[in-house]
């Protein structure tokens, strides 16, 4: 398959929402190591909102689907993660107007744009021990594989996101709540990076199917 279709995108979002709901205790526990242990619970509200948005099933194109998901997240999750995840989907949606499928190259362009917008909004960059540390290497793989079949490209992105999330355990936090006790943090994967790696794992599964 050389394209990512609207039904595959819906399957991706549905799987991501389910994974977040299944995994929210683990995400809370990761967050508790440096933050207030709320990341899983907050994102679970977003996951429920994604499920509601998907249930409406009125999307005519990729933009409509992703915009409804982005607005659902922005207005349900709260905190920095709500603003950042919401911005991700809203930026992706900018690339889906009038489209019912994306090429690998479209996918790379959309995620690259989302990455830039999120770094700007959150005033963060790669290496600050945030969700960006899983997103940025995934986007880099989408770039490397921009002429490959979608499934191959998304699998590479998922592996890179997971590895990026793992590497946050060695990073000193420089943004968000994790930074407050930065002299004492370490050894734990960043909760936001962990949830971001779930997003790409779900994308990879949806494109293999």
């Amino acid at each position: 398959m050389m394209t990512l279709t609207l039904p595959q995108l819906r399957a991706w979002l549905s799987a991501f929402a389910r994974d977040v709901l299944d995994d929210h205790d683990r995400l809370n526990a990761l967050d508790a190591a440096t933050g207030d242990g709320e990341h899983g619970s907050n994102l679970a509200r977003g996951a429920a909102a994604i499920q509601d948005a998907l249930a409406e099933d009125r999307d005519e194109d990729i933009a409509t689907l992703l915009r409804s998901v982005g607005m659902a997240i922005v207005n349900s999750v709260g905190g920095a993660s709500g603003a950042l995840y919401g911005t991700l989907f809203l930026r992706l949606s900018d690339h889906g107007s009038g489209r019912d499928a994306w090429s690998t190259n479209d996918l790379h362009a959309a995620f690259g744009d989302a990455l830039r917008a999120m770094c700007e909004l959150g005033r963060v960059r790669e290496g600050d021990r945030t969700l960006i540390d899983a997103l940025a290497p995934a986007v880099a793989q989408l770039s490397t594989h921009r002429d490959a079949p979608v499934a191959e490209s998304c699998e590479a992105a998922a592996l890179a996101a997971a590895a990026g999330a793992q590497r946050t355990a060695q990073l000193k936090p420089r943004a968000g709540r994790g930074a407050y006790a930065s002299g004492r943090a370490g050894g734990h994967v960043d909760a936001g990076a962990a949830s971001m790696s779930l997003l790409f794992a779900a994308l990879s599964r949806a494109t293999c199917a």
């Binding site: 709320e38 907050n42 922005v74 207005n75 709260g78």
Partner: peptide
């Protein structure tokens, strides 16, 4: 008011 220890949302 946001949820516990989490900011309000734009809406």
């Amino acid at each position: 008011p946001g949820s516990v220890f989490s900011s309000p949302v734009p809406r």
